[in-house]
Amino acid sequence: MSSEPESETAAAFATHDHSACMGETLARAEAEAARRGARLTPVRRRTLEILLESHRAMGAYEMLDRLAAEGFGNQPPVAYRALEFLVENGLAHRVRRLNAFAACMHPGEAHAPVFLICRECDSVAEAPGAPVRAALDEAAAALGFTIERANIEALGLCPVCAAKETP
């Protein structure tokens, strides 16, 4: 499981050197793709870069619009195939609540992320979820069930949006 400090998770909701954040995560993603023998084609790489541009999830059609504007084609399979590749190779996650995708901030690390989704601005933070996953596994085991995959998402307010709502 990830031993990520809380300060790294909080970066998604705070002012930080996003260029460094993006660059470091992209470098780890490239190394993970190479380790897996997966080919990070230009459209796949650009899709990942677009996901890393901000700490929020993007829908496939929004991604398609961005890719088409950059000359990668305007047919839905262009975006869907690139996003599917990223998810299958642990470089992105599907955020089901938003029907969207977010870059994995910890590529190559075994982790059980919890997605904290702001209901106002749609920013998404990938928080370490090992304790949550352990509790879920324990509850399932008590019923004789084995969890193979779980996607844990929480909806709420990021610090910026919460401050706006505070009188």
Score class of each variant (00 low, 15 high):
residue 38 A to Q: 05
residue 18 H to Q: 02
residue 113 P to N: 04
residue 122 D to T: 15
residue 139 A to I: 03
residue 158 C to K: 06
residue 154 A to N: 09
residue 19 S to L: 11
residue 55 H to G: 08
residue 164 K to M: 00
residue 158 C to G: 06
residue 157 L to T: 06
residue 135 A to M: 12
residue 140 A to V: 06
residue 68 A to Y: 05
residue 104 C to N: 14
residue 164 K to T: 04
residue 12 A to G: 15
residue 106 H to T: 00
residue 1 M to S: 04
residue 25 T to M: 00
residue 166 T to I: 07
residue 74 N to E: 10
residue 134 A to R: 11
residue 141 A to K: 10
residue 78 V to K: 01
residue 77 P to W: 01
residue 77 P to Y: 02
residue 156 G to T: 07
residue 81 R to Q: 06
residue 60 A to I: 13
residue 123 S to R: 15
residue 161 C to G: 02
residue 141 A to Y: 06
residue 103 A to T: 09
residue 68 A to D: 07
residue 92 A to G: 08
residue 73 G to A: 03
residue 26 L to Y: 08
residue 39 R to L: 13
residue 95 V to I: 11
residue 86 L to G: 07
residue 157 L to D: 09
residue 49 E to I: 11
residue 86 L to V: 08
residue 71 G to A: 04
residue 151 N to Y: 14
residue 18 H to M: 00
residue 105 M to P: 13
residue 157 L to H: 07
residue 74 N to G: 15
residue 139 A to K: 15
residue 152 I to W: 13
residue 77 P to N: 02
residue 126 E to P: 08
residue 157 L to P: 04
residue 94 R to H: 12
residue 46 R to W: 02
residue 3 S to I: 12
residue 79 A to D: 01
residue 125 A to S: 14
residue 136 L to F: 08
residue 136 L to D: 06
residue 148 E to Y: 12
residue 159 P to M: 00
residue 144 G to Y: 02
